[in-house]
């Protein structure tokens, strides 16, 4: 089928099999490799993207279901080449990752959380990322990163 996906602010015309997941469409159709496959059955959250600003699992959607919605991937929240957003920079500051495989999904989940809840408690951070598995970090430095990002965002006027 032919469809148009709005990814990171641009419309992308794609020709895909109907059975293609949003995850595969982003990676193989659009060529954005920052969205990673972890389990392809909706448990690990590695493939998380933002759909109209909300964190969702891209393996649990057909690409066709995303038509008419704004899809944001990790590439779309990176301000410019070599630049980092406040949330991304906070993950670097606390070393909220190791292998980097779950990281794009974690960062996007954190961005969605902080948009809804600028000053989350530890429990709220934990709940927000509880659908994103990380096998490296034990989550401690990820929670720290999100708390730091919240603090920084509150001090800045940058969205």
């Amino acid at each position: 089928m032919k469809l148009v996906l709005n990814v990171n602010g641009s419309d992308r015309m794609l020709e895909l099999e109907d059975r293609t997941s949003l995850l595969d469409a982003l990676r193989d159709g659009v060529g954005l490799k920052g969205t990673h496959a972890g389990c392809e059955h909706g448990v690990c959250g590695t493939c998380t993207v933002l759909l109209d600003g909300e964190a969702v699992r891209s393996c649990l959607m057909l690409a066709a279901q995303a038509e008419g919605h704004a899809v944001t991937t990790i590439e779309g929240v990176t301000p410019g080449p070599g630049e980092l957003s406040i949330v991304q920079d906070s993950f670097v500051e606390t070393h909220g990752m190791q292998c980097g495989y779950c990281t794009p999904g974690m960062v996007l989940t954190a961005i969605a959380l902080l948009r809804d809840n600028p000053a989350p408690t530890r429990d709220e951070i934990v709940e927000a990322i509880s659908g994103n598995l990380c096998r490296c970090t034990g989550y401690g430095q990820i929670v720290e990163a999100i708390a730091l990002a919240a603090e920084r965002l509150q001090r800045s006027n940058t969205p």
Binding site: H41, L60, L62
Partner: peptide, 26 residues
Amino acid sequence: VIAGGQTLMPMLAMRLVRPTRVIDIA
């Protein structure tokens, strides 16, 4: 029928269900 797809998608991916057509009601 596919609604949110949060259960159907894994079943499709694992080929536990093999519909001819998937009807999106969104």
